[in-house]
């Protein structure tokens, strides 16, 4: 589904301030797979996601989606950002409808689809609210609905729950898995929480920083559908978390902070 082939990214702020964010990253993600990218801050994990999204161009290498090279953003890949990136001048409903209306979907159809999605993320009572009137967790649910509206095959999630408190965060993890279980889209999920990565993913990709590259890939062999309450008691879940956490600590210590 997604093939990342030898992708490198260098940022040239000035001649003497070059920064190699990604160095020769190769990764392939199967259709319907939920893959988390884990790593210390500054390891280029978000940059990698932006390259897959077509928002940022790689310095070297390429990304193929369904065997077609990525040349820019497209509705087959829907991003969800940590900062929500909602349109402040539009209501909740306006945000969700935006992509559909721009895409020429008739108003009645766009309205029906948007309301359906808002019901799914439990926000139908808030369709006329503006983003500034919502809590962080609600904003991110709007953003997820806005992205799901145009039916992307792939979700690119950039620390989507990073700005939320612990309670809201676990709530949204459950919501996400619930939504994902319905049609099993391919998901690339960037996070720096080991527990979150293990709970959600089929595979966890550990990256190291300076320059960013893949350090190790863990297969998470836990049954689905997953329930948080059960997994927390599951020995295998705990082992994965401990093992990856340990590796994460080693990686973070090597990083120049």
């Amino acid at each position: 589904m997604i093939a990342i082939e030898g992708v490198s990214k260098r940022f040239d702020a000035a001649r003497d301030r070059r920064h190699l964010a990604l160095n020769d990253v190769t990764l392939s993600v199967a259709e319907g797979e939920f893959v988390s990218i884990l790593g210390p801050s500054g390891c280029g994990k978000s940059t990698l996601l932006y390259i897959v999204g077509g928002f940022v161009e790689p310095t070297a290498g390429r990304v193929l989606v369904k065997d077609v090279p990525v040349r820019g953003p497209g509705p087959d890949r829907g991003p969800v950002f940590q900062e929500f990136a909602l349109f402040p001048w539009k209501t909740v409903l306006g945000n969700v409808m935006y992509g559909l209306q721009q895409g020429g979907v008739p108003r009645a159809e766009a309205l029906a689809r948007s309301r359906e999605l808002l019901t799914m993320v439990r926000l139908s009572a808030y369709e006329n609210f503006y983003p500034k009137e919502l809590s962080g967790g609600m904003k991110q649910r709007v953003a997820i609905a806005r992205t799901l509206a145009y039916r992307p095959n792939i979700l690119l999630m950039d620390e989507p729950f990073g700005a939320l408190d612990a309670h809201t965060r676990t709530g949204l993890q459950n919501d996400l898995l619930h939504i994902w279980d319905k049609d099993r889209k391919t998901v690339l999920f960037v996070t720096h929480s080991v527990e979150e990565a293990v709970f959600l993913s089929d595979r966890v990709v550990m990256m190291s920083s300076a320059p960013g590259r893949i350090k190790q890939i863990f297969d998470i062999d836990l049954p689905r559908p997953r329930s948080r309450a059960e997994l927390l008691l599951d020995r295998r879940f705990q082992d994965y978390v401990v093992e990856i956490e340990k590796m994460f600590d080693d990686t973070a210590q090597q990083a120049p902070a």
Binding site: G53, G54, F55, G72, P73, G74, P75, R77, G78, P79, F81, A85, F87, Y98, G99, Q102, G103, A143, R146, T147, A149, Y150, P152
Partner: peptide, 8 residues
């Protein structure tokens, strides 16, 4: 980006 990803 959010708009571009929606195909705009």
């Amino acid at each position: 980006w959010s708009a571009r990803a929606a195909g705009v």
